[in-house]
Design a binder for these strands. Structure first.
Length: 852
RNA sequence: GGGCGGUUAGCUCAGUUGGCUAGAGCGUAUCUUUGACGUAGAUAAGGUCAUAGGUUCGAAUCCUAUACCGCCCACCA
């Protein structure tokens, strides 16, 4: 294939991906002496589109996967697709709504089937997008979160928990969205600050005592008054000590409730008296538990007041009920004041409806034993975290974890395998026959629980489920995911992983931060600042997106998307493409002889640099330092390979070395930029197989002394170029020298790199022009005209001053007896030799200054 | 209230056991229409590493305090 002038990713990427996929190389190898390396992909929404965060996820995971594959590990990257319980349900419910239907028009089984079909119609986009991003995952192992094996494992775990008494059915306050008709875990509720009012309401004492006739409570939710079953004061609060145990008359009702003493009441806040509504407030619920209070539900799951709220209020929305309650209180003269306040209110993260804390019977997991075990494992450092501080955050979270509500009132999910005796509501049994609404067992009839599992309950078992066919891949190597999933997901995987397998689910956790928009704002549809990764792929190529996303990004830190990094990465791909094009050209014309007269030190030098980068990349990737690894390979390709080595090879044309080094570079860059490296690999005339399945490069042999010599040549060339640039006039002059073997041996190279008209060897007495101040090379002159030379003098003076300062610093350091005594010997020696070279250089420069 | 991050070049950010002249990309300036690449090459300018103390022979890096920015958790009658 011929190389076009510029690399156009779109032309090649789909074919290259098809080549990989067809080759079967995504499947894990099963080599005997090799280690397993396993990454489970956090499953993207099966019927959604990938967002830029997925771009980062795939980039990081695929770099690791491809790197380990090249290193020879039995590498397995397991893709997944998430049924995305709630997310998908919301989308589907909207569709129903548009058709004028509601969920209540269908049975759960019908709905499940409808959504299943809906998802499968939509499905596939996400998987195509993963391919566009270059994910080298094993498609045959793709697991959908509703696959039978997922359900099986989840049911086994549930049964085990059930048998061990860690599952219980409880009536507790749950976070309920009255629009979506489902409960949420605490962690799913979004809190927002809102303006509200704090009302003061008088509750008259049934029997006035010690002159106290009423007490005044403060509340932001007067409508819940109808469900009050006590009022609380702080036991230390002297104002109310005497009336603890007395009764008050609950306004607007005919009930009498007790004044209790509880720490929950803060004497500093409001009047210091708080009404207690155990059925509608989490704190009040706890107070209720402590004092064994009655719980009266006055708000129903539909968000309307219940019959228990009284005939005057039944059927009203909470907002209307609030107005009516306030009005009625006012009429009775019991409303004593109102003031503005800002407080935070829980909202449904999807529809923004205010979350009602409501009593509901749900399945709960007693998390204590699970959390304790997880904490112990974390404290024993069994799992490494990147960034490390996430471990502590997780331990803290686990220490305060409350029992986990795993019931969701959404049809789209894994049915909870529990049945209730129709004659005895307290009799629940575990049974897997969830496809039946009613079953009989031991002659009794049981009705199915209509709820489904919280998604995190099933995805918390993801590593063990996905690796079940190849158990040697469990525990997995690394769990790479977004930092926001530390609590909801990573914590669950650790708890349930340990519970299921007695092993950790993964050895490392790497958490990436959020990809923000270019201004550093969170991306959101409503803000309209969402960046579509596939658009970037179309515009700049998949590799450019990957390299651009990982650039300058460190673990756990949110960072802005940077199109300039993507462009820079696109340019790197193009650069490499042209490097390859040029080398192929030289290979094609290898009959042309290069310079054989002298050694090319640049060859030793580039081998040294490639080896160095090779080692560096290995170290950086194993420490998850992707951005630095990317920088290292960028620097090698652009600033070393192309700028110096390849430039020199225009003279030497050492095609064998050009081939070897290019291959090594392609392989080392492959994990980061798989498409362009593979495209080149396929295009080159001499390479075989695929870049993807090569072995990570061995180190190259080179002569260290000659490599160091080349470095000297670089500094001579740079120095000369700098002069050519800064000197007034035409710009390039002959480089004259005497008594300098390195220059003598490399006249051609110097001329080539500096574009000097010549590099003549002269006699010392003929030396004239601009004397170069280069350490170790005192006899090099640029033969410039007199008039230009004079202007140069001022410049020289500045440089002498600067060098003098540097020498002073070094001398001061050496004069310090503590430095000489305490600093490592090598460092001190280095300082000494540096001082020596610089002093000599200074003498030379001073001598030159005297001359000009 | 508890916890965690951040503050380094005009911009976005790297900088892991403290060690030579603090780096990158983009941007800027000047030069180069050289047969790999103008998505390029060459050269250069640009930083008292937020502030104040401390530890140390030596601090962007460790400690303490302050300021500002951001995130998470809990609470908010």
């Amino acid at each position: 294939m011929k190389f076009s002038k510029a690399y156009e990713p779109n032309q090649f990427e789909p074919d290259i991906y098809a080549l990989w996929e067809k080759s079967g190389a995504f499947a894990p190898t099963n080599k005997k002496d090799a280690k397993s390396y396993t990454i489970v992909m956090p499953p993207p929404n099966a019927n959604g589109n990938l967002h830029i965060g997925h771009g980062l996820t795939i980039a990081l995971e695929d770099i690791l996967t491809r790197y380990h594959r090249l290193k020879g590990d039995n590498t397995w990257y397991i893709p997944g697709a998430d049924h995305a319980g709630f997310e998908t349900w919301v989308v589907y419910e909207r569709r129903l709504e548009a058709e004028g239907k509601t969920r209540f028009d269908y049975s759960r089984d019908d709905l499940y089937e409808q959504v299943w079909n809906f998802v499968h119609e939509q499905r596939g986009n996400m998987e195509l997008q993963l391919r566009a991003l270059g994910a080298s995952c094993d498609w045959d192992s793709l697991t959908f979160t509703l696959d039978q094996k997922v359900v099986d494992t989840v049911y086994n775990t549930f049964e085990k928990l059930w048998k061990q008494g860690l599952i219980y059915r409880g009536v507790k306050l749950v976070n309920f969205c009255t629009k979506h008709q489902t409960a949420f875990a605490d962690i799913e509720v979004t809190h927002k600050d809102e303006k509200g009012k704090l009302w003061e309401i008088a509750y008259p004492l049934v029997k006035p005592k010690d002159g106290i006739e009423e007490i005044i409570v403060s509340t932001t939710r007067p409508e819940t008054l109808l469900g009050d079953t006590a009022v609380a004061v702080n036991p230390e609060d002297n104002r109310y000590k005497n009336i603890i145990g007395e009764k008050v008359k609950l306004p607007l009702t005919d009930r009498e409730i007790e004044i209790i003493a509880d720490e929950h009441a803060d004497p500093e806040y409001g009047t210091g008296v708080v009404k207690i509504t155990p059925a509608h407030d989490p704190n009040d619920y706890e107070v209720g538990q402590r004092h064994n209070l009655e719980m009266i539900t006055v708000i129903g799951f539909d968000g309307k007041m219940t019959a228990e709220a009284g005939a005057n209020y039944e059927g009203l929305s909470t907002t209307d009920a609030r107005q009516k309650v306030l009005g009625d209180l006012e009429d009775q003269g019991l409303l004593r004041g109102e003031q503005d306040l800002v407080h935070s209110v829980g909202h449904c993260y999807k529809c923004n409806t205010v979350i009602e804390p409501l009593l509901r019977e749900q399945w709960f997991i007693d998390v204590k034993p699970l959390a304790e075990r997880a904490i112990k494992t974390l404290e024993a450092n069994k799992i490494k975290f990147h960034p490390a501080n996430k471990k502590r955050a997780l331990i803290n979270y686990l220490k305060n974890l409350k029992d986990w509500n795993i019931s969701r009132q959404i049809p789209w999910g894994i049915p909870i395998p529990a049945f209730q005796n129709v004659d005895d509501p307290t009799d629940w049994i575990f049974d897997k026959r969830v496809d039946q609404q009613e079953i009989t067992k031991n002659g009794k009839t049981y009705r199915r629980d209509e709820d489904t599992f919280d998604t995190w309950f099933s995805s918390g078992q993801w590593p063990v489920i996905t690796t079940s066919d190849r158990p040697q891949h469990y525990p997995t190597s690394v769990m790479e995911t977004g930092a926001d999933l530390l609590f909801p997901w990573v914590s669950r995987m650790i708890m349930l992983g340990l519970y299921n397998t007695d092993e950790i689910p993964f050895e490392d956790v790497y958490m990436h931060g959020m990809v923000l928009d270019e201004k550093g704002q969170k991306m959101s549809k409503s803000k309209g600042n969402v960046i579509n990764p596939i658009e970037i792929v179309t515009q700049y190529g998949s590799d450019a997106l990957r390299l651009g996303l990982i650039a300058s990004r460190s673990a756990g830190v949110n960072q802005a998307f940077s199109s300039s990094k993507v462009i820079a990465s696109r340019n790197l791909c193009n650069k490499l493409w042209n490097v390859a094009r040029f080398i192929q050209d030289m290979v094609d014309n290898s009959a042309e002889q290069g310079n054989k007269a002298a050694d090319n030190y640049g060859e030793d030098w580039i081998c040294r640099e490639i080896n160095k980068t090779n080692k560096e990349i290995q170290k950086l990737v194993s420490n998850y330092r992707f951005a630095e690894a990317g920088d290292a390979i960028y620097d090698l390709i652009w600033n070393k390979y192309a700028d110096w080595f390849l430039e020199g090879e225009k003279l030497w044309k050492n095609t064998e070395l050009l081939k070897t080094t290019l291959e090594q570079i392609l392989i080392m860059l492959h994990p980061f930029a798989p498409f362009v490296t593979e495209t080149i690999w396929q295009a080159l005339s001499w390479t075989e197989g695929m870049a993807m399945t090569q072995t990570w490069p061995e180190t190259l042999k080179f002569d260290a002394k000659r490599a160091a010599k080349f470095e000297e040549l670089i500094s001579i060339i740079t120095n000369i170029r700098s002069h050519f640039q800064s000197l007034p006039g035409a710009g390039s002059y002959p480089i004259a020298f005497y008594d300098d073997k390195l220059v003598y041996d490399n006249q051609l190279l110097l001329q080539h790199f500096t574009k000097a008209p010549g590099v003549p060897e002269i006699k010392p007495e003929d030396a004239k022009g601009l004397h170069l101040a280069i350490a170790g090379h005192p006899n090099i002159y640029l033969e410039i005209p007199e008039d230009i030379h004079a202007k140069y003098k001022a410049n020289l003076e500045d440089r002498i001053l600067k060098l003098g300062q540097e020498i002073n610093t070094l001398e001061a350091r050496l004069r310090n007896p503590n430095y000489v005594k305490k600093a490592p010997k090598e460092l001190v020696d280095e300082t000494k030799s540096q001082l020596e070279t610089k002093s000599k250089l200074l003498e030379d420069m001073k001598a030159e200054f005297a001359l000009v």
